[in-house]
Design a protein around this nucleic acid. Structure first.
Length: 671
RNA sequence: GCUGCUGUAGCUCAGUGGUAGAGCGCACCCUUGGUAAGGGUGAGGCCGAGAGUUCAAUUCUCUCCAGCAGCACCA
């Protein structure tokens, strides 16, 4: 008789099981309730199918819907398979490729048969219906180990060219598996899966949209149709998710920007923002805030040219790498015809010099650094600029304020000696932390390591990466609390970078801040300082930004606050609204006093009912509404209604001014 | 840039092979009303641009432009 397998459970108990038994058998042995609830198993730390036999003595933890993260991952993966099966059942000849789980659901990339158009939104209801049928049929999902040749043969026989291509590249020595859905459909998959399609809730998923996606993510390859779905464990979760999506749509900065009259975009300058008075007010507050922060941090602000000779960009390496995303202009005086009118399109002489609009500020900052002779005693030198840059982004990438062609960075470059790097980066960590906290963001810090294509020696990269690591360590941020993580291959071509990823009010993340330790550009542009030894040395150049760009940061703030900006950023901080015209004079006096106290205030004396005025200014997200009627005018008071509160508070005008001044004080100026 | 979708009044959107409609907003009038929409009247449109089909195109076809959703890209 063969020996029994010893299966240890999380509670410390050990069960002896026949060879060939499965986690499902263990669950059944414990109780029928658990047998029903068990979705999958963690065997020696690896998530596995509930019906996959044990291979040896094992540690087992059963996964049920209570283990939400794992259960969701499994369910979504299964939904993706069911999606692929449904599409092929409905449209024979459809090729399938890949279908992973995502953060909120799943997708599957497919290629429609040549006989029909790519799948679109209109096809989704039918596919959903078919998916429900497959789920209701409760088809068992069976794992089988296949050889590579078997797989290739199968896919070739089925005309699945993408799958066949993939199978050919699979490693020889790895155990390759397929999963059967019932006995009539299978997909190549590493698994694990639920025991059967019936474990899915047919009411807990929804196909959301279709989109193009390249085979293997490469633009040069065929474009497939990606069918996206969102998938959950039950209908309640699905509905909650759909509700969250609606909430996110409500805070869309493009919508709020229009409603709040902050900015607009139009064709004639697509990708560049027309800031309206109210939007630019936010900008100015942010800029003033950042100036105070940078001044206090030992930065000196400069301003550098928008246009520089293309040769300068060739030397820095940017022209070679990014020319197609740069705007270039011929440096010529336009030809003028006899009538004195400029020709519609000036001719460019073949020997005309080309200028490029700056896509970044770095080279110009090096040129400022290079003026005169710098001693090691002067370092570090921190040069800051509210630098307006242009990049000709791929048109499909443009998105409201988030991705634009003209943007202004809160940019700065720190020139320092080798042994000042860690301390400068640590200081920056502290500065960034104080800024993000002022806006109520939490954040994660990540280190993007050397990419495949890069400039500079391995030794320099080793050093640069380690410096950033050390600095984060010293700042006390190299831990889970700060989501510390290293990202191989994600760095810039000239430097590794630390990245700050903010988490906003509804849990989305945004990468904004960065600092990069660069030894390449100082070298290419020949920046030097005189050391203690009297010799020339290369400074290290730290590129850094905290907001990233004003445009994008304002977009993020609008969505983070859902338009309800804190008083210090609100374009209009208060409105004095009258109930009757007898109060007009008093309202005007109040506005004058508020203005004198530095409050951004408007009056609303219109011949409208107070209900209407309250509604309108609430929708406009004005933080404070000061209502005045006959009573207030006689008593010298105001009825203050704060946005988001239902109660109004009657107080003297002086008290209101004190309160509003307090609320309008920027966070860095509070005592 | 790629795939798909969209483009009609300031905004949100109906609609039609015979050059247009609603709601909100705007203007004017009435109303002076105590905390999220008082009533009336009126103005406002080269139906994204160009070409084609047609007696006739905002409507059908093509090209371009822009926007949206993804993808790819993001110094």
């Amino acid at each position: 008789m063969t020996e029994l397998l010893k299966i240890s459970l999380p509670d410390g108990s050990v069960r002896e099981m026949e060879p060939g038994s499965t986690p499902g058998d263990v669950a059944a042995a414990i109780g029928p309730g658990l047998a029903k609830a068990a979705l999958a198993a963690r065997v020696n730390g690896e998530v596995r199918d509930i019906n996959r036999p044990f291979e040896c003595d094992s540690e087992l933890a059963l996964i049920t819907t209570k283990d939400e993260e794992e259960a969701l991952e499994l369910a979504r993966h299964d939904y993706a398979h069911v999606l692929a099966e449904a599409v092929q059942a409905l449209y024979p000849g459809t090729q399938i490729t890949f279908g992973p789980a995502t953060d909120d659901g799943f997708y599957y990339d497919v290629m429609a048969p040549p006989s029909r158009e790519p799948f679109g939104m209109d096809d989704l209801p039918a596919i959903e219906e078919k998916m429900r049928e497959i789920i209701k049929a409760d088809k068992p999902l069976k794992r089988e180990v296949w050889s590579r040749e078997q797989l290739i043969e199968k896919w070739q026989a089925d005309g699945e060219t993408f799958k066949a291509e993939w199978a050919k590249e699979l490693p020889e020595d790895e155990e390759l598996t397929v999963y059967w859905s019932g006995d009539d459909w299978l997909d190549m998959c590493r698994g694990p899966h639920l025991a059967s399609t019936g474990k899915l809730d047919p009411q807990a998923f929804k196909l959301m949209r279709t989109a193009g996606a390249y085979w293997r993510g490469d633009q040069k390859n065929a474009q497939l149709t990606r069918i996206y779905g969102t998938g959950w464990l039950n209908k309640k979760q699905l509905n909650a998710h759909l509700h969250r999506l609606e909430e996110a749509a409500k805070r869309d900065h493009r919508k709020l920007g229009r409603e709040m009259d902050l900015f607009h975009l139009q064709e004639e300058a697509h990708g560049s923002v027309f800031w309206h008075p109210k939007g630019y007010r936010i900008w100015r507050e942010l800029e003033a805030y950042m100036r105070r922060k940078m001044d206090a941090g030992g930065y000196r602000e400069i301003k550098t040219p928008q246009l520089m000779d293309v040769r300068q960009w060739e030397q820095s390496g940017h022209w070679g790498k990014y020319a197609e995303n740069m705007f270039a202009v011929p440096d010529i005086v336009p030809d003028v015809d006899d009538g004195g009118e400029a020709e519609a399109s000036p001719k460019v002489a073949s020997d005309a010099d080309w200028m490029a609009i700056k896509p970044m500020n770095c080279p110009a900052h090096v040129l400022v650094f290079k003026q005169g002779i710098t001693s090691y005693r002067d370092l570090p030198i921190r040069l800051g600029e509210m630098g307006c840059c242009h990049r000709n982004e791929p048109h499909g990438a443009l998105h409201g304020l988030m991705r634009v062609r003209q943007f202004t960075q809160d940019d700065a470059h720190i020139f320092c000696t080798e042994n000042q790097v860690v301390e400068e980066v640590r200081k920056f960590c502290a500065l960034a932390d104080s800024v993000y906290r002022d806006f109520g963001f939490t954040y994660h810090v990540k280190l993007a390591l050397r990419p495949e294509k890069r400039f500079g020696s391995e030794a320099d990269w080793d050093k640069a990466e380690q410096e950033l690591r050390d600095a984060v360590e010293e700042a006390g941020m190299a831990n889970d609390e700060y989501g510390w993580e290293e990202l191989p291959g994600e760095g810039a071509f000239y430097a590794p970078k630390l990245e700050w990823h903010l988490t906003d009010a509804i849990g989305r993340t945004w990468q904004v801040g960065t600092i990069q330790g660069d030894r390449v550009l100082p070298d290419r542009l020949d920046a030097t300082y005189v050391g203690e030894d009297g010799e020339k040395h290369r400074p290290v150049m730290l590129h850094r930004a905290i907001f990233g760009s004003y445009e994008r940061f304002i977009g993020i703030l609008i969505e983070h606050y859902a338009g309800r900006l804190p008083s210090w950023l609100a374009p209009v901080q208060a409105v004095v609204a009258t109930i009757v015209s007898d109060a007009d004079e008093y309202a005007n006096d109040a506005v004058a006093k508020l203005e004198a106290a530095g409050i951004r205030v408007e009056s609303d004396l219109r011949n409208e009912k107070i209900n209407y005025k309250v509604r309108e200014h609430s929708l406009a997200k004005v933080p404070h509404l000061l209502v005045v009627g006959k009573r207030e005018a006689e008593e010298g008071t105001v009825a203050v209604r704060t946005l988001g509160e239902k109660e109004q508070r009657v107080m003297s005008l002086d008290e209101a001014i004190a309160m509003l001044s307090e609320a309008a004080t920027p966070p860095d100026l509070r005592s």
